[in-house]
Amino acid sequence: MPVRMAETKIGLDGVRHVARLARLELDAEQEARLQHDLSAILEYIEKLNELDLGGVEPTAQVGEAGTPMRDDVVTNQPAAEAALANAPAREGFWFKVPKIIE
């Protein structure tokens, strides 16, 4: 599509690297489209650089601090069939995947 090319904030190599990390197979057209979209979004995000963030602590969570803890008690019964009911492929009680090469 005809686009005002945003200043390139991420190169095609960058897009491919991120896609590998995210395990997304992309074709060339998708790569180009994502490069454009991500660049536009990252350019918008540059806005954050206007702020002086010295001494500002990060906020990761907004709930109450101190994780609740459960007692060390077994409450679940073995449930292999429930676990395997949605399996795309299985062998006996195992989930089956293409061969892993280490």
Binding site: D72, V74, N76, P78, A80, A83
Partner: peptide, 23 residues
């Protein structure tokens, strides 16, 4: 050596048939 897993109530036990101590 706990009785249950770290984040759920499944048994922390070795030696069961596959995918039995799961939730």
């Amino acid at each position: 050596l706990t009785r249950s897993k770290i984040f759920c109530g499944c048994a922390n036990a070795f030696g069961a048939p596959p995918n039995h101590h799961v939730c």
